[in-house]
C-alpha cells in the first residue's frame, strides 16, 4: 500500500477512536492490528515491546479515572484499551514502512519539494550522532566543573551549534552529490498511487465504523 495513504489512514482511525468511547472498538482495532503484524512477520521481540511499553501510562490513566473520574470506571477501561490501540495501530505503519518509502511518495506523488523530503531524510540519518553529541556535551561540561541539566539552555545551545555545522556539511555534501534545489530529478524507484490504495483505505475506514454500531 502507498506509504502516505497508509499513514493518513492510520492517523484518521487514530483520531476517530480518540473521540469515541468504546472498549469493544478499541479491542477490535487491537485484534486486527495484531493479526496484521503477525501476517507481516514482525518479530516476537517487537510485539512483546508493544505489549509492555503501554502498560505504565495506560495503568496511570486507568487508575486516575478510578479515583477522580466522574463518569465511572468504564472511561478508565476505554482509556486503558485506547492507549494499547494507538500503539498497536501505529505499529501497523511504523513496523512495516520506512521513512524512505514515505519520503519517496511524498516527493513523487504529493508534490512535496524534494528539498523537504531529502532534507528531513538526511537529518534522520544523523540521529545516532546527535544522541552521542548530547552525551558528549554533558560530559565535556562536567570536565569543566559544570553540570548541564537536561533543561539547561546551554545544553540546547551547544547541541544547536553542532547542528548548525552539520546542516552546513550535509547540505554541501548533497550539493556535491548533484542535488540542486527545485531542479527536476529522475526516479529509479517509482512510487505509485493505485485505485486499490483508495479501496483499501475506504474498506478499513468503513470496517472501523462497524463495531460502533454493533456494540
Amino acid at each position: 500500500m502507498n506509504a502516505a495513504i497508509k499513514l493518513f489512514m492510520v492517523i484518521v482511525i487514530g483520531v476517530e477512536i480518540s473521540f469515541i468511547q468504546s472498549v469493544p472498538l478499541n479491542l477490535c482495532i487491537l485484534a486486527v492490528s495484531c493479526c496484521y503484524l503477525l501476517i507481516k512477520r514482525v518479530s516476537i521481540k517487537s510485539l512483546l515491546y508493544l505489549i509492555i511499553y503501554p502498560i505504565i501510562p495506560a495503568t496511570g490513566l486507568l487508575v486516575s479515572q478510578l479515583f477522580y473520574g466522574i463518569q465511572g470506571p468504564i472511561i478508565g477501561w476505554v482509556l486503558f484499551t485506547r492507549l494499547f490501540a494507538y500503539v498497536w495501530l501505529g505499529a501497523t505503519f511504523t513496523m512495516t514502512t520506512n521513512i524512505k518509502d514515505l519520503a519517496f511518495t511524498l516527493e513523487q506523488n504529493f508534490r512535496l519539494p524534494s528539498k523537504f523530503a531529502y532534507g528531513v531524510l538526511t537529518a534522520f540519518n544523523l540521529v545516532p550522532r546527535i544522541i552521542t553529541e548530547v552525551q558528549t556535551i554533558r560530559h565535556a561540561s562536567l570536565m569543566r566543573g559544570v553540570t548541564m541539566q537536561l533543561w539547561s539552555p546551554k545544553l540546547y545551545f551547544k547541541a544547536i551549534l553542532a547542528a548548525i555545522n552539520w546542516s552546513s556539511d550535509l547540505s554541501q555534501a548533497m550539493i556535491s552529490h548533484g542535488f540542486v534545489e527545485d531542479a527536476p530529478r529522475t526516479h529509479v524507484e517509482k512510487t505509485t498511487i493505485r485505485w486499490s490504495d483508495f479501496a483499501i483505505f475506504a474498506f478499513w475506514l468503513i470496517l472501523v465504523q462497524v463495531p460502533i454500531f454493533v456494540f
Binding site: D169, F179, V188
Partner: peptide, 17 residues
Amino acid sequence: QFTMTNVYDEIQFALEN
C-alpha cells in the same frame, strides 16, 4: 557526506540528481 542509509541508495540518489 551521505543522505541515504545504504550504499546503493546513496549512489542512486546522486545519479537521480
